Computed example of a mutant assay.
Amino acid sequence: MKLTAVSAGLSTPSSTRLLADRLTESARDELATRGHAASIEVVELRELAGDVANHLVTGFPPPRLAAAIDTVTGSDGLIVVTPVFAASYSGLFKSFFDVIDPDALTGKPVLIAATGGTARHSLVLEHAMRPLFAYLRAATVPTAVYAASEDWGSGGDQHTDGLPARVRRAGAELAALMATRPTRAEPEDDVTALERQLADLRFD
């Protein structure tokens, strides 16, 4: 199975990329327990910022961006992580998904996550990210993961699960959805498709 993480972190190293890696490990481990081997790819949006901007104004994706879009749309499951800017996802994050065909993510299992300096921005997951992927008709898992600065290294308390527990639960939910999703049929090449159309013809 193909599992892709999209990280919109701008710095190196980045807490956004760190969260993406932890979620990816959790989902991959859970898939392994279900008997599925997963290949992992990470799309770093900071490396594609110029290409995304060019595509928005020209309508044509440069080769590197086209390859990233193919990776995302061709995956069996997605993990998407953005830093919070002005109480919402980053402009780069939104612009990347703006250049993807609106039908390309239909039914695809998606785990949404975000990072920020304070816990008071955690609702970005529900008021911004979940509606975005609902519009794209993706199958978003129930548990969304937000990591504030104080969450790193925290084990939680009697009222709230710590970050590691939330990562494990979200990863398990994504793996379960990926494992039960019907297998994608391989696309036919042009010759095979033509042969099939000719075979379906009926002559009087």
Rank of each mutant, 00 (worst) to 15 (best):
P102A: 08
L105V: 07
A114M: 04
T118F: 15
D103W: 05
T106G: 09
H121P: 03
G116V: 02
V110N: 01
V99Q: 11
S95L: 14
T118R: 15
A104Y: 05
T106N: 10
A119P: 13
G91R: 15
S95K: 05
L125F: 01
A113V: 03
A104K: 10
H121R: 11
A114R: 05
I112W: 05
D103L: 07
D101Y: 02
P109L: 11
K108S: 00
A119Y: 06
H121G: 04
T115P: 08
A104H: 06
P102C: 03
L105C: 00
T118G: 15
L105W: 04
L123V: 08
E126C: 00
I100G: 03
L125K: 02
F96L: 13
F93K: 13
D98A: 08
S95I: 02
A119S: 12
A114S: 15
G117I: 05
H121T: 00
D98I: 04
S122K: 05
E126I: 02
D103R: 14
I112G: 04
I100W: 02
G116A: 09
G116H: 09
F93Y: 15
F93V: 06
D103Q: 12
T106Y: 10
V110D: 05
P102S: 15
F97Q: 06
T115N: 09
D103P: 02
